[in-house]
Amino acid sequence: MSKKPEIKTWKDINTGGWIESGTSEHFKTGDWRSKVPIWQEKNCIQCMQCFAFCPDDAIKVTAEGKRTGYDYGFCKGCGICAEECPITAKTIKELQKKGPNVKIDAWDGAKNPEYAEKAAILMVSIKEAKEKHNIK
């Protein structure tokens, strides 16, 4: 992890304001969230689509290349991981087979109990994340 730049006065600023790399680690953007992604390990096929599409660095992957939880310090709650997860598409297709007019998507799917059971990523409210999943 990089050091936080020490800037006291204007004289301490590097020429042109360059700083060492990796300082975004200090800039927690997780508090921008209005929804929280929940990973359901039991439905995950470890395809790494979510990892590849996440615009931040919020999806944790082990050294062995295994997707684990989220780094909520950086997750902005954009829902891209849920949208790109192939299990989302699969689940929606299955639900549509039962009722062709069923309107469901990655952003709101968690409200549907059947979707919530089968999807690998659920987007839930901050309140629900706190109460049901113990995520602040």
Partner: peptide, 29 residues
Amino acid sequence: PVYNILDVDNPITVGSLVLTDYYLEHKRA
């Protein structure tokens, strides 16, 4: 040059976000 963004051995950030805390100091410099 005083810095070089292509120096991979000494990676740096150029043009980062500067908000209310240091923008004024940048202009002063």
